[in-house]
Write a protein that binds this DNA or RNA. Structure first.
Lengths: 208, 208, 208, 208
DNA sequence: AATGAATGAGGTTTCATTCAT
DNA sequence: GATGAATGAAACCTCATTCAT
């Protein structure tokens, strides 16, 4: 009655590592760091736990290995988009479009990068904070270029990045709209207000 | 057979429940569902674990009990604010102001309602989704009143509520601005874009 | 076929702790820290591991709990004997007699105190070094009072304490002599040499 | 089918065994049997674990192979020194001097021979006991020649060998005195007592 | 009304050892 | 002669949960 699993044994390390990484990332995306056990990863790949530990060290490092490539890609994509834009306003739009495009292209990758069940302390927390901060930085820069005080820009950047994340999560759950439209929707909503900020002479805060 | 020590305190059940709820909610707010053990709750209240189980059944139900009052309060506050507003534009502003004010008044309550370490399946997930949806609904209504399709309104509501949430978190961490000013900052940023939506003739979605 | 174990359940904590401590100390004495598993301790007492962790925290703390009383007793016995002696020579004799008497009185206690399979780093190593150092200190003092340079005294104290330990271990393995005679044997062997040191005018080292 | 990379080095077995033995002994000396993993040995030699198993069978046998040469050397050195001495008194001095000299010459070898983290049962324990007993025997012989019963001599031999050992360890840790002076210090301390034993009319057994 | 005592089940990690080439 | 790939077994520890009073 048991499906006769083809013997997948004795693969070269590089190949096995990719297998593990794929299986692990899928599990982490689906259930979150906390609810994925090393046993589950091992079972998904069809190997035993010690192999996982031989290759990746421990659970945190396995998680980070799942995240690394993806995280760096998103970092670079966002900062390249921002750098290439002629004005802060365009930079912000480009950043948001890049972000949503990324989410749409690889749901799993994004979910792992923005996992909400990660430990809030220790090396993993630091690494993830690093990724998120480096992704957020160019966006904050764009906001800062648009007028208002520096604190205000930071607050807005935090807020609208979270808005983008939330819209992404909502999109993952509902699939109600093409992700690209979400980018335009958010951009359209913000643009006039930001244009107005840019022309105003940036007082301490709010309206004169 | 010996009963020298008077029982620590023999409170009526209702009172004891409130005590437990307060202590538990503070813990859940500070450390998240996942990282709070029943032992920790019992120790914080000064009772033993079996009492917790007698009164609340299990950990999830205890958590839900902690959340119930808060969730209903926020639900009602937001929907009252929206209902009382003369126009969709005012409704939205009122909703955001109410939200920030609520977070400012009771950060613990707020954090429990939006705990990010909750199980993503099971009765607790459903209940929490319910609260969040009922809080988001009036906001989405306000957005919808400003033009665009219903899905777009829902997407925006989720996004800007998360923005408010993130700005609040940032406020809790930095204390860099009064929370009320954050509300105005967000409103000022959104208002022109929303005004523009309101005048445009809301097609299926997006502007022509 | 299985012996019908009398249900030993539900003992008061104090009693259970003593049971655990006895069983654990016996195991540690017989097999050494490294080779005793928490499962073995639990099985020996007839309880499950979590109880051990509830009561003692972890394996190291359980070990230290086994050692504490004994260690302090030996410390005090040795330093009291040394303090009560009129001359350094007498002090040294008293210390050695106390030491061997202790070994004879409670073989298990001594074996646990001088376990050779302990971790060489971490809290347990520090605690055990503390005990051993406090036991050695009065002996080193006695040697120092007998002439020669301070380094020489320290070297000799280290050496002869180790001699006493080794004789104790040999005694535990062979039981060939009453332990008390070992004390006298060692004392008789050292005494003339030490007396000679005491009269000599302590040059840099060796005989003038 | 591809064989671009030349094999790391295709040494004849005898040479490879020596390499392994050297690296392994250094590791065992530094960290003790328990804390050295086969992985660490393999890495230190620059070979893979299966080779270790091919050549030596298992960890215990590898350890014994590391110890064999050293153990036999020390055995022979001590017994030669004792045999060459004209009187029991000289024999003892010669034995102690040989012992200290050996430790000074090759601290690694010495530490492996007296590793304190070895299993206390099984083939390894028996083998090590054999080495230690054969090293102790000539010393005990010398003590026996100085009066007292055979058991007493054995007890003293065990004790004073341990004293030499401990002084060596202390020397390794502090470097406070030349090792040769430690030998003289111990000899000077013991000599008068032993001389006295020699003149006293040895009761139980021994020479009149 | 409340407790002290106890556990089942499962998690991460380590290590000596072997298989197939 | 030597290796890359892989594993079985067991260790420490944690936590939600229940039993008997």
């Amino acid at each position: 009655m048991v499906a006769h699993e083809p013997p997948r044994s004795r693969l070269p390390r590089a190949e096995r590592e990719l297998q593990v990484l794929d299986a692990a990332r899928a599990l982490f995306a689906a259930r979150g760091f906390r609810d994925v056990t090393m046993d589950a990863v091992a079972a998904a790949v069809g190997v035993t736990k010690p192999l996982l530990y031989n290759y990746f060290g421990n659970k945190e490092q396995l998680y980070l290995a799942c995240v690394r490539r993806t995280g760096e890609e998103l970092e670079q994509a966002v900062s390249a988009a921002v750098a290439a834009a002629p004005t802060p306003g365009e930079a912000l739009k480009a950043a948001l479009r890049t972000f949503f495009a990324f989410v749409e292209r690889d749901r799993g990758a994004w979910q792992v990068l923005y996992d909400e069940s990660l430990p809030t302390a220790g090396p993993i927390a630091e690494a993830m904070d690093g990724y998120r901060a480096r992704i957020a930085a160019p966006v904050a820069g764009a906001f800062a270029g648009l007028g208002g005080s520096a604190v205000q820009a930071e607050a807005l950047a935090h807020g609208q990045l979270a808005a983008a994340e939330a819209m992404s999560r909502w999109w993952l759950a509902t699939d109600a709209l093409p992700a690209r439209e979400l980018a335009e929707l958010l951009i359209d909503t913000l643009e006039p207000g930001l244009a107005q900020r840019a022309t105003a002479p940036a007082p301490e805060e709010g309206t004169p």
